[in-house]
Amino acid sequence: MSLRIKITPELGSLISFLCIFIFFGVFAPRFLTIESIGSMLNMAAEFGIVVVGVTLLMTGGEFDLSVGSVFALGSFIFVSAISNGVNPYLAFVFVILSGIMIGLLNGLITVKTGIPSFLTTLGTMLFWRGVMLGLSGGQTIPFQIKSRLIENAGGRFVDPFLNSVWIFLVTVLIFHLIFEHSRYGNWLRASGGNKIVGELMGLPVNKTKIQAFIVCSVLASFAGFLDACRLKTFNPLLGQGMELEAIAASVLGGTSLLGGYGTLIGSLFGVLIISALRVGLVMMGMTVYIYFSLVGVILIAAILIKHRFSVKFIKGA
């Protein structure tokens, strides 16, 4: 072979994204307008920030099913705090602190007891959803408080892009640097790839994992805060089903379900695939319901293709 390009999973996700993008470009009228690309990115932003954390944690060999509940809880804490007269900046600090606490709890339970994180976070997902429903009485809470923080976090400097789009892209960039160019990234991949070997080489595997749990929860609650600022309301059903969609986006981006491998660039395209589908299907005049089925089909197809490629790669080597 004269041309040797290593088919990495993230390259695969870029190709899938381009295919979907071109498909809608051809078949969906007005898909290739700045407005529609704007709404695609706007839709991607908050969800994408959650996916960054999920990718980080999955690379470290753990799952977080509680991100949807934590996302909603972030919104709830912010909205209920400012509705009760708390300064928005202080309310924002509460949101971040709650993220740290929840992540720490998820991490400690998982690492100290050895319960698989899939179950730990299934438990905390239900727990926090219940707490939030109980405290809010299942009611939506709209608010009309004006604050520069809220305007900036939920507004847009450059039409039609929400500011959260830039925040999302910066988040991806920062965590890309951490993944690829820091010691922590190496340790996280090692911890997810093979915990026993990692410990043998003297890595603080448990600490590394707990830190990833914390980052994941903080990003989810932060995204919830952005959502509250954008919609100026809290909705108790917020973030339901988000956890699995986030895992799907991450896996579409090439993250390994078994841990040890993941990239932020891949996840970025995974997120874009999902929001391109949402926007594109609507623009083709199709019902939104088909979106879920399509994501399912694409997910399975992507895994099959990846599996084929990786088998070939190992055999050819």
């Binding site: 010691r183 190496n186 991949r189 090692a190 790839g193 093979n194 990692g198 890595l203 040890g260 491998y261």
Partner: peptide, 21 residues
Amino acid sequence: ETDLISQLNIWRNFFLGKEIT
């Protein structure tokens, strides 16, 4: 038994835990 992590490349394994920054 192998004390390498198969998801990491050679130099990442070589320096695992002793990375130069």
